[in-house]
């Protein structure tokens, strides 16, 4: 293992985060606070409780997931796309470093950033609503697994994208809608049964459900299923990344 190279990439990426602190950390926190104001205060005053939890409290895990998903993808896709775009990728490709090490560096940094962000958002939420976490270890497990998985997913998008438009396309057109429809703001059980079935095809439902369970012990689907789906998605991303590096897809001629 070329630990120094992993460290170099990781620190390089983290330095980028601190350099762009405003857009990396502050802006997601501000937008999450806005969700609290709009959904928590305005709508929450009409919906008193969901499955025994006040509405404001109920949406916290969903909001954290929303940020973690979008930020993981954004961080990782940009992290690998940018060197491709400006050409500095030549140095990564010509270095004595394995693909696995490249992934650890880039995905590790992207995931670290979104985990920090998730924790900051939770702390922010704590200022608005009373927060209790029933299963802290599971909460962290789901948080880390999701951050890593979606950072990998972002890494794949960053390699696939050959323009800034494509870089934005999947997060905007696929991930954000799936997250909004995945039960960030409501319980799937609140839906009419037909919609409920369709919603269960949305993978994000399982992520949010498991994560919410670790907070309040309530879930739309079984926790085991949530964990299984998360791990399954992780495995899929790993397989795609393995294929990318094996073939040099969009990286090497």
């Amino acid at each position: 293992m070329n630990y120094r190279a992993i460290r170099a990439i990781y620190l390089f990426e983290m330095a980028r985060t601190w350099r762009t602190l405003l857009q990396s950390i502050v802006s997601p926190v501000v937008s999450t606070s806005l969700y609290f104001v709009v959904f928590g205060a305005a709508i929450g005053s009409r919906i008193t409780e969901v499955e025994g939890v006040s509405y404001g409290t109920f949406i916290v895990p969903g909001l954290v997931m929303l940020s973690v998903l979008t930020q993981s993808i954004a961080n990782a896709s940009f992290g690998i796309y940018f060197p491709k775009f400006v050409g500095t990728i030549y140095e990564i490709l010509s270095a004595p470093i394995s693909y696995f090490e490249i992934i650890i560096g880039y995905v590790g940094a992207a995931a670290t950033k979104s985990i920090i962000l998730g924790l900051i958002i939770m702390a922010t939420a704590g200022l608005f609503v009373p927060l209790h976490i029933n299963h802290p270890i599971w909460m962290l497990t789901f948080l880390v697994l999701t951050a890593v998985t979606f950072s990998l997913f972002g890494f794949i998008i960053g390699i696939w994208a050959d323009g800034f438009e494509k870089l934005q396309m999947i997060p905007m057109l696929v991930v954000t809608p799936l997250t909004f429809l995945g039960g960030s703001f409501y319980s799937v059980n609140m839906l009419p049964s037909g919609w409920r079935t369709i919603t269960l095809l949305n993978p994000v439902v399982y992520l949010i459900s498991g994560f919410r369970w670790s907070f309040y012990g309530i879930a739309d689907v079984g926790v085991g299923l949530s964990l299984g789906m998360t791990l399954g998605f992780l495995a899929t991303c790993l397989a795609i990344v393995w294929w990318i590096f094996r073939t040099g897809y969009r990286l090497k001629h």
Partner: peptide, 9 residues
Amino acid sequence: FSRGLFGKP
């Protein structure tokens, strides 16, 4: 960064 990438202390 380049030095680190090439695994040198």
